[in-house]
Nucleic acid binder design. Structure first.
Lengths: 233, 233
DNA sequence: CAGTGGTCTAGACCACAAG
DNA sequence: TTGTGGTCTAGACCACTGG
């Protein structure tokens, strides 16, 4: 049996996780305070603090001033999803990326979209539909509405050459985003675009991005049949 | 114009985000090192470090020893998904939670499942199918395989009274999980369970959880038609 | 009120990796 | 080789909140 040796905050973290894991500290238990743990582990309180903050952020501990630190009873699992640029996602699979603009119009958004993006009445949006292909096969269809008040420069961009997403990433920073993941059935239109059968189940992501209080863009990505989004915690 | 006042790491963080946002520091730019920023902001380097680490974790900065800190060119957006306990998810919507066990068998898993869970040949799994209801309407169908070698105690549990997920959360800690999100069409069996029409598109989450190197359980959650998973960054 | 976590500071040493 | 971020430490004060 080897003695426990603590040299850094990662060591503290794994010791804490071990105690939770092996049920030395059970769900709901109050664990010793930072000062006591620092003495036990032979390190500074700041080091214990760093470790406990990290474990708490992962959802395994609940911390409150004065009340102390408890092992979480409902370990809410948090999965971190990386939302990559589509070009990268395709190239990471060693497939050839290509892009085709389907349509580009200036028009009024629907009422529900106007509500979601909190736009004024009469405001026009740039509506862009495009297709991303991997090795020449349809990968994902993008249906995008851009608030032209927030990003007027986009109107001058040639979207058949450069795709709207990459232009926006470079030129229109955002501070906040709402994401919705869902499943939908292919209708005739989207089935045609994605080379799917009518009634195929398609994975869909809708995302609205904001710069403080102004909506920049709402985009719906409809993936080819069989697409899977994966992550790990 | 008010003077910039920095009192804590959150202030440093928002000033940094402002500079990225307002393109004072552009994508790809090298920003000053921690020591210089500490002088500029009139605070300790540790405070700057805390702020920059936080911004980097959010994906807006790339940091490398010796190479310094750069504004990310590909701001990979990271969405944090909370995976709640189903009971909570339903109760949070002020709906009535209920649960029904559909089947419970000890049997051999399919070859693909055996591969995914890295099980030996001949190993038997507990296969549990159950339905969760919100206000009496089908909410999500759970199809679960449990590695009985890892969690033999579950065999003694009455799963018609207590659902497997909550028992496992309390009694079988895990250290790692793989998640897959996808869309599928309803076949006759699942349509019947979820009160859906055949061919409806259904949102599906598959999750395999591990304790170090041992697979605990693989569960597929198939949600009712129209289900949406939402998050925000 | 008083105990807890949250944070700041100044200084120090270390690990990494670019040149 | 050397500049950069990564981290530790000891001590201090503060903010919150439970009792």
């Amino acid at each position: 049996m080897r003695a426990l040796e603590i040299n850094n905050w990662q060591d503290v973290q794994s010791e804490v996780l071990n105690r939770i894991n092996s049920r030395i500290w059970k769900p709901g238990d109050l664990i010793p305070n930072e000062a006591d743990l620092a003495i036990e582990f032979g390190c500074a309180r700041a080091t214990v603090n760093r470790a406990l903050r990290s474990v708490a952020q992962a959802g395994f501990l609940d911390r409150r001033r004065k009340a102390g630190t408890r092992v979480a009873t409902n370990p809410v699992r948090k999965a971190i999803l990386s939302i990559p640029i589509i070009r990268q996602e395709i190239e990471d699979k060693n497939q050839t990326y290509s892009y085709a603009l389907i349509s580009r119009n200036l028009r009024e958004p629907s009422i529900s979209l106007r509500a979601q993006m909190k736009l004024n009445a009469n405001s026009k949006c740039l509506h862009v539909v495009a297709l991303y292909l991997a090795d020449g096969r349809p990968y994902v269809c993008e249906d995008r509405w851009v608030n032209t008040v927030a990003v007027p420069e986009l109107l001058k961009v040639d979207l058949s050459a450069e795709n709207a997403n990459e232009w926006l990433v470079q030129n229109a920073p955002f501070t906040r985003g709402d994401f919705t993941f869902s499943a939908r059935s292919a209708d005739a239109e989207v089935a045609g675009r994605l080379d799917a059968k009518i009634c195929d189940a398609l994975f869909e992501i809708q995302r609205t991005t904001w710069n403080e209080v102004t909506a920049i863009t709402t985009v719906t990505l409809t993936y080819h049949p069989g697409y899977r989004m994966q992550t790990r915690i």
